[in-house]
Design a protein around this nucleic acid. Structure first.
Length: 573
DNA sequence: GCCGTTTTCGGCCCGACTGTTTTCAGTCG
């Protein structure tokens, strides 16, 4: 039983929270937070790294002290420093830190003066009007806290990027037309193409901010104006999504775009590089003393610190700066690289459009092939295919293919992986197909070992080409299965099997970190839409976004190949 | 707590906005 990276990360974050409330050295706290973030997004399992005898202190931001703490968590499951801190400060205080308007100083004061430990305590104090009596607090602060406590959604969720696209587009269209707007970009984690977003950062280049700001805060979709200043305003949309607007002069656009794209960790690293080169970098430009030496474009910012342009998806301070320095940045996969789709459904099971319609849509996208992968019989709910019905579909596909020129439907199936790792259809039936996609749709809660072995057992069958949506997660709905991903990917590599990056916006399964792990372990990825209708073939772009965040190149993705090349690649037997 | 072609000690990104303030602390990104 080994501890997960996310658990280590959570303990470090909790420790940082409590130390911050205690008023500890902010740089020490930052070191813990950096480490928490590093571990959480590391494409390797920390426990496995330790088991392999790797030096954690080689990781950026991890020194001797943190390496020791992490080792302690891996071997004991606990962190003494955290437990000690939890005796000094109530651990529940970290919940209070999440309230907008309350930072460590105020939480500390609330705790000291009012002996408040929990959100429930705080709620009572607010009702009794005690909060506003504290020094530095007032009516506004109390209202803000009250509103948070009343509207708090315990499972407060980040919003899918695909959803944010829809929510923001009316606002964006309006601002684009505003007089004096020279450029506009959705920056922040949206531009970095993160799978989910906490808020949205809009960046506008305009000489005069008044009119843009007015159009922004007065837009129909705005429910509440949180702040309104000369260069910066914030609103909440009716959907609950927070949107921040920054207006800068065109001269500063590149510097501002870089700054507001983030990530924070990337920005700090770039600015630090700037300092070393005698430069000051802020959202208004790059300066040597008082002289502006760049900032109109992002490329100028990177150039000022001696680096080539770094794609937004890579800006997480996860090695991209070092890679840029050495000229080793990956050439990230792009939509035009994709030649086909290897996962789709028809009305034979739970799809909406027939073979002909799907084929037509795929051809219009310029695809050379589309794999038809309906469910197998175990999926009774969607009337999964048995041998007879699959054979019929195969004949239908053959007939259609005879009429195509430069395009083909691939005969395939999304075959269920049963609890013991065997497949839902017999080998002789699978032998009739061009490729086999295998997936788990039941028993998501087996133990880590059993689940991992189940998937490896499925890949033991040489007919299995691709493991679909490998972790089974549904963002905000279902947690990923408990899996030893590193072991799984190694097993895939040894067997010549591929893993899918399912591009459904609610799945995006694999994660960016898992993509990176796959690349590092030499496992190629199938970038597939899992389309249940012709329009869902468009989901490919979400998969592309995720793959780019996972540092994948066209070479890492199997469906960037022609069918002829792909055929060679997928041959296992 | 981390880190080092200025340093093993002394730095650690930087600016905007709000609220409660008479000049700024706290929070946020």
């Amino acid at each position: 039983m080994s501890i997960q990276n996310i658990e280590i990360s959570a303990m470090l974050t909790q420790l940082a929270d409590l130390l911050e409330i205690e008023g500890e050295n902010p740089f020490r706290i930052r070191a813990y937070r950096n480490a928490a973030r590093l571990v959480e997004t590391l494409p390797r399992n920390v426990a496995a790294m330790i088991a392999a005898g790797e030096e954690l202190s080689k990781l950026p931001g991890i020194g001797e002290a943190l390496a020791t703490k992490i080792k302690e968590m891996v071997s004991t499951g606990h962190l003494q420093a955290l437990e000690k801190e939890e005796h000094r400060v109530p651990p529940t205080l970290s919940d209070l830190l999440k309230i907008p308007g309350l930072g460590p100083k105020r939480v500390h004061l609330i705790y000291e003066q009012l002996n408040i430990h929990t959100l429930a305590d705080l709620s009572k104090a607010v009702d009794a009007g005690k909060l506003r009596a504290l020094p530095g607090f007032g009516e506004k602060t109390e209202t803000m806290v009250r509103q948070y406590l009343q509207n708090r959604n315990p499972g407060a969720q980040r919003v899918l990027r695909a959803t944010v696209e829809q929510l923001v587009s009316p606002l964006l269209d309006r601002l684009k037309k505003a007089p004096g707007v020279k450029q506009i970009t959705v920056a922040g984690s949206y531009r970095r193409q993160m799978e989910t977003l906490g808020d949205v950062d809009l960046l506008v280049a305009a000489e005069d901010s008044d009119e843009v700001t007015r159009l922004f805060v007065e837009h129909d979709d705005v429910a509440k104006v949180l702040a309104r200043g000369k260069t910066k305003s914030s609103v909440t949309l009716r959907s609950g999504l927070q949107v921040d607007l920054r207006v800068v002069p065109e001269l500063s656009y590149g510097a501002a775009l870089h700054y507001f794209t983030g990530s924070k960790a990337h920005n700090i690293a770039i600015r630090t590089r700037g300092v070393q080169a005698g430069l000051k970098i802020n959202e208004y430009g790059v300066f040597r003393g008082t002289e502006r030496v760049g900032g109109r474009t992002e490329a100028e910012v990177f150039k000022a610190v001696g680096l080539p342009f770094i794609e937004p998806e890579l800006r997480e301070n996860q090695g991209e700066i070092e890679a840029a320095e050495k000229g080793l940045l990956p050439r990230l996969v792009n939509l035009p690289d994709i030649r086909g789709d290897l996962h789709s459904h028809t009305p034979a099971t739970d799809g909406r459009n027939d073979l002909q319609t799907l084929a037509q849509a795929a051809r219009e996208k310029g695809f050379e092939y589309l794999a038809i992968t309906d469910h197998s019989k175990r999926m009774t709910l969607v009337h999964g295919l048995n041998a007879t019905r699959l054979a019929r579909q195969v004949r239908d596909i053959d007939k259609l293919n005879a009429a195509f020129n430069g395009f083909r439907l691939l005969k395939s199936i999304e075959v269920d992986i049963l609890e013991d790792g065997s497949l839902d259809l017999s080998d002789d039936i699978l032998d009739e197909l061009d490729l086999v996609v295998a997936a788990i749709h039941s028993r998501f809660t087996l133990t880590r070992d059993k689940q991992t072995e189940r998937l490896i057992r499925a890949m033991d069958n040489p007919r299995v080409t691709i493991l679909a949506h490998p972790t089974g997660r549904l963002i905000n709905e279902r947690k990923p299965m408990d899996l030893d991903l590193e072991r799984l990917l190694k097993a895939a590599q040894e067997r010549g099997c591929f893993v899918e990056l399912d591009s459904q916006p609610t799945r995006l399964d694999l994660t960016d970190a898992a993509c990176r792990m796959a690349h590092d372990l030499g496992v190629k990825v199938s970038l597939s839409t899992d389309a249940h209708s012709a329009v869902e073939l468009d989901f490919m772009r979400h998969g592309i976004a995720q793959a780019r965040r996972g540092w994948l190149t066209a070479a890492d993705v199997i469906n960037t190949r022609t069918w002829k090349d792909l055929q060679r690649l997928i041959k296992r037997k």
